[in-house]
Amino acid sequence: MIAFWILAPLMVVCALGMVVVRKAVHSALLLAVVMVGLAVLYAAQDAPFLFAVQIIVYTGAVLMLFLFVLMLVGVDTSDSMVETLPGQRVAAIVLGVLFAGLLVVAVSQATYGAAFGLEAANADGNVPGVAQLLFSKYVFAFEVTSALLITAALGAMLLAHRERLTPKATQRDMALQRMRDYAERGVHPGPLPSPGMLARHNSVDTPALLPDGTPSELSISRVMRAHGTVRDVSHDRLIAAEVESDTKQLGPSRTLDRQDEAGER
């Protein structure tokens, strides 16, 4: 019971939060908390099998599926909290409260005998007990549900499938296209230039510096620019300038090239 009284308020708060937060990803995470809480409550009620299934299937598979789709749709998208239908929010809250009140009243007004408890049913263990029932009394439902799952998977594949309208570009096609671009428009056929010798970081989001110290537009991918996740390198520029001036003060460096000028070493 202790577990219940700790978890129950937490779950209610998370559920409320799930309904009110702006970002959809936050809603998903809050729902995950609720689901895990439920799993614990199942365990507390002598249903270890369901505890495991809840975590693995529900939280682990279904909720993750939600998160994947959220990624595809746009992880940063946030809903506008302005209500477009007049009176909808008020009515929803009123009805929700009313409904909750009704259910609570109905449930609390009923008198139950002492709980039977699952000791007898779980005599051989919960999993054998569940299996006992599942494959005798509910075997038909089991079979039908498996058919349902197969159908669902097929359906999802069908819905998510994208028909190609043009033939897929092979590697050879892409190479030829790159050469063509260079020949006609002078587009650089190689990869994007790296940040450079004097860069402080080697990551994709660090732009390379041109001789005058400005970042090169060519070195940053279009996507990152659109997202605005390019690293700021103005500080690095100053340090590079210092090194340059230091090098000049030191004079020409003793290299193999100098020895050639003396004739002999």
């Binding site: 409904f99 259910l103 109905a106 007004q109």
Partner: peptide, 24 residues
Amino acid sequence: FVRAYALSMLGGSALVVLALVAVR
């Protein structure tokens, strides 16, 4: 709007529950 229809559905089911509770 689907949400408005859902609202009326919830309202209807609230009435049904109310009737059940009241009868009981």
